[in-house]
């Protein structure tokens, strides 16, 4: 059995993982320092606008991922091939 960590094997998978990581890091220290200023952007505090941008970015990367990485058949069609769990 292959026990190695499960990581993306394709270039598209790696790209999506990188995008997800960037979006997550954007909400954490130290990236959040970029927005930690008492200025208003679009009428909102910079940190609030930053949070709204993270909402948009999260949605955007998932929509991109949906295009680049369609769900594998083995997940989409699992309902057709039920097994019995070992602990049943």
């Amino acid at each position: 059995m292959n026990h190695r960590l499960i990581l993306p094997a394709t270039t598209r998978g790696k790209l999506i993982l990188a995008l997800f990581t960037v979006v997550i890091l954007a909400g954490l220290w130290p990236a959040v320092l970029l927005a930690n200023h008492a200025v208003l952007v679009l009428g909102l505090p910079a940190l609030a606008t930053w949070s709204c941008l993270i909402i948009v970015a999260s949605t955007a990367v998932m929509l991109i991922a949906n295009r680049l990485l369609p769900l594998p058949e083995s997940i989409r069609r699992t309902q057709d091939q039920p097994e019995t769990a070992a602990n049943e």
Binding site: F20, V23, I24, G27, S51, C52, I54, I55, S58, T59, V61, M62, A65, L71, S74, I75, T78, Q79, Q81, P82, E83, T84, A85, E88
Partner: peptide, 27 residues
């Protein structure tokens, strides 16, 4: 707002797999 958005990223990756656990393994 930020952590809830990240929960959606987790749902995007894990959710379909959890669903498949149910459909295929009966969980």
């Amino acid at each position: 707002v930020i952590y809830l958005s990240y929960l959606a990223l987790i749902a995007w990756y894990c959710g379909p797999r959890v669903w498949a656990f149910g459909a295929r393994l009966g969980h």
